[in-house]
């Protein structure tokens, strides 16, 4: 018990220190590496508070995909240029004092309200049997509050489209062709990815996992393929990409409209819930994977043409 508490205290403290270190790095490249380390330790801390689903997602998306996006963007703007100094002192000191006061107030609020009765746990578990899934987090995001998730997929779609629109032609810098070792790696890893992604979707019904984790894995495969000798995601016909990109949102929307006949938007009848959730999860996995891959390609500046290959 005490050992665990010491571990928690050390981890919580080092998270704060890492956040400060990340923000004090001199160059963008170092800051990104620190941010990824911070994200992984954050995922570890979420395991300590029994949020395995979230720890998986944070490690895959919060640390992995975000880090890849930042590094891809740095290919265009430069890794090593030191940051210019912050703004002048007259803005810095009031903002710092204000933020410190905010922190003190928030800390006091959290400490005072800590023992108030915990929210919706009992309610969420009481209806778990009718929700069509045994994983309570999946039940929340795809049944109880599925309207939130519908809008979130919408946000993802809008963001991917904006990145698509913003990345102008010919902004990419040339990529050296990968050697035989990378090709060998891809030959082994691609089947493993295709094995793990469906497994992740399926296991989300009863254990930690689900569409977001699987989508992040899929985008990892996408990003690796973009670095490889034949970046086929860029050569895919635009129509295929567009259909895949919008599949999750449109299917989700269609499900919402279909449920209208039962009285409410997205109120699945309990006997059909499992099938609807699985269907929506598969579609969302594809869309999330394609969206994140498009974002990666857009941030690297590769979107509108094949990366120019220097020999």
């Amino acid at each position: 018990m005490t050992t665990g508490l010491v571990f928690d205290a050390v981890l919580a403290f080092s998270l704060v220190v890492l956040a400060i270190i990340t923000l004090r790095q001199r160059t963008p490249g170092e800051a990104v590496v620190q941010l990824m380390i911070f994200g992984l330790l954050l995922a570890l801390s979420w395991l300590r508070v029994d949020a395995t689903d979230l720890a998986l997602t944070e490690a895959a998306i919060g640390s992995g995909v975000t880090g890849a996006l930042l590094l891809a963007a740095l290919r265009r703007t430069g890794f090593g240029k030191p940051f210019p100094s912050a703004v002048s002192a007259w803005l810095r000191y009031p903002v710092t004092i204000g933020c410190a006061l905010l922190g003190v107030v928030l800390s006091l609020v959290v400490m005072h309200t800590w023992d108030s009765p915990a929210g919706l746990t009992d309610l969420a578990y009481a209806h778990l049997k009718e929700s069509g899934t045994q994983n309570p987090v999946t039940a929340v995001i795809l049944n109880y509050r599925s309207i939130d998730t519908l809008l979130e997929i919408g946000v993802l779609l809008v963001a991917a489209l904006s990145v698509y629109t913003l990345s102008g032609p010919a902004s990419g810098t040339p990529v050296k062709p990968p050697g035989p070792i990378f090709r060998f790696y891809m030959r082994i890893m691609t089947p493993i990815f295709w094995l793990v992604v469906p497994y992740m979707v399926w296991v989300g019904g009863r254990a930690p996992g689900g569409a977001f984790q699987a989508g992040a894995l899929l985008s990892g495969l996408g990003a690796l393929t973009l670095l490889g000798p034949s970046p086929w995601p860029l050569r895919l016909k635009r129509r295929v990409v567009r259909w895949g990109l919008t599949l999750g949102f449109s299917l989700f929307l269609a499900a919402a409209a279909w449920m209208w006949q039962y009285g409410n938007l997205l109120a699945y009848p309990p006997d059909q819930a499992k099938n609807w959730i699985l269907l929506i999860e598969i579609a969302c996995t594809l869309s999330i994977g394609i969206s994140l891959t498009i974002m990666f390609a857009g941030c690297a500046g590769w979107l509108h043409e094949d990366p120019k290959r220097a020999s």
Partner: peptide, 20 residues
């Protein structure tokens, strides 16, 4: 409590969209 956990799961994806 799975409800805040679901909110965070949604939030992570929105955060990565905003970053991109």
């Amino acid at each position: 409590d799975p409800v805040p956990q679901g909110m965070v799961l949604t939030g992570i994806v929105v955060a990565v969209s905003a970053t991109a």
